[in-house]
């Protein structure tokens, strides 16, 4: 088996006296869709924040492509190739969909103040490329028709798609999605699953937090289950589904 794309070893995190994560270890392989599930408050989003640099672990380590992420800020991690979306959609609400995705190109473009002021040939070419790529990505996620609409005027499902397009604009190798299907109806969720499979087949590894078990079971290759900050199971959706500890966590019954 090849080296994992992302590896977390014994990761722990406290908030005040509360233990949000307790010695969690897992590894995400390249080209898989990895699910992160667990009841509310299990520590899933905290784990996402640790992976993407929005919080630092109090113990343990996270590495991406063999490279430790300790001490890296979110923007540095984004540049390394991890992109994310947010549970409570964080688009640039007053900018157009296209502009949102164009901002996503920031990390992969370089024109500075001098180039912008002088409008150098390279800068103009880069600007054109940014816009073209952004338009392409909007098309890719299926909202090309809404390119000029303000992000805040998009439907809920389209906002989720836009957030994915914006994240893809940073050219990630790992895309972390925090509840991408939240608030979607069954049809939209189906379409989303299709989109995510396509993203994966285009070479982007996915890790997602999701409450829609139907989506998780149908989409993910492997699933990690957290409960009260602990890892209680990992495996294929089928294995996890039949794990007594998981059933106990979800049903609230004590683990046998």
């Amino acid at each position: 088996m090849s080296a994992p794309l992302l590896q977390a070893e014994n990761v722990g995190k406290y908030f005040g006296g509360v233990q949000a994560l307790l010695g969690v270890s897992f590894a995400i392989r390249a080209d898989e869709i990895y699910g992160l599930i667990g009841p509310n408050g299990a520590g899933k989003t905290t784990l996402f924040n640790l992976i993407t640099g929005f919080a630092a672990p109090d113990s343990g380590r996270v590495s991406f492509e063999g490279r430790p992420l300790a001490g890296l800020k979110p923007d540095a991690i984004a540049k390394l190739g991890i992109a994310r979306t947010f549970q409570n959609i964080r688009l640039f609400a007053n900018l157009s969909a296209l502009e949102n995705v164009m901002i996503g190109r920031h990390a992969r473009t370089r024109a500075g103040v001098a180039a912008a002021v002088l409008r150098t040939r390279a800068q103009r070419a880069e600007e054109a490329a940014i816009e073209a790529r952004a338009a392409e990505l909007l098309d890719y996620v299926g909202i090309a028709a809404r390119a000029d609409a303000l992000a805040r005027n998009l439907s809920y499902g389209d906002q989720r798609r836009l957030e994915i397009a914006r994240a893809l604009a940073t050219e990630p190798r790992l895309l972390a999605l925090d509840e991408p299907a939240a608030g979607m109806n069954a049809t939209e969720t189906q379409a989303l699953a299709g989109l995510l499979r396509r993203v994966r087949s285009d070479g982007v590894t996915l890790v997602l937090i999701e409450h829609d078990m139907h989506l998780v079971m149908g989409l993910c290759d492997r699933v990690l289950v957290l409960d009260f900050g602990r890892r209680i199971a990992e495996g294929t959706p089928r294995e996890v589904q039949h794990d007594p500890a998981v059933a106990a966590a979800y049903l609230g019954a004590p683990a046998a």
Partner: peptide, 13 residues
Amino acid sequence: EDETAARAMGIDT
């Protein structure tokens, strides 16, 4: 607009 989202986009805020 949103500093947190900007950071997630790789912008060194």
